[in-house]
Amino acid sequence: MSLTQKIIFTLNGKPVQADAQVTASALELLRGAFELGGTKLACGEGECGACTIIVDGRSRNSCLLPAVDLDGREVLTVEGLWSEDGIDPVQQAFIDEGAIQCGFCTPGMIMQTKYLLSKNPRMTPEEIERGLEGNVCRCTGYKKIISAVAAASAVAAE
């Protein structure tokens, strides 16, 4: 079997460790060892954004991120947004605005939105559209997703 490397990192606020295969992507590690199925594999080539996670404050395509590179980093996946305190305002906005159909792109969209809002809580419609250009949705035509980000943006700006 291929070479593995022990890594320690922070996953959704908790310290974790794993033996990561050197050839594995972060996506494979999260979906496999950590059973975090919310991070979706849809293209595996960095072209669709379904596997978006936030690493050290930056959104990344986890399919193109080597698992071993997570060592020492802070990782946030969609599962980290829902806690005892309730669901994240971004998740609520996607529900309220009808931004979800099949839902397969949704976790990636939500994580990218979290990232965009962390950079700029008052986005213009154009900034929202450009911010989502790496996230493909085949169901909605994006309009309701854009509305959801705008709604979440209004909450974040308060």
């Binding site: 954004g49 930056r58 959104s59 990344r60 395509n61 990218q112 965009l116 450009r130 250009e133 790496g134």
Partner: peptide, 9 residues
């Protein structure tokens, strides 16, 4: 250049 997630990497 590419998409935001790629620009971040």
């Amino acid at each position: 250049f590419a998409a935001p997630q790629i620009r971040n990497a």
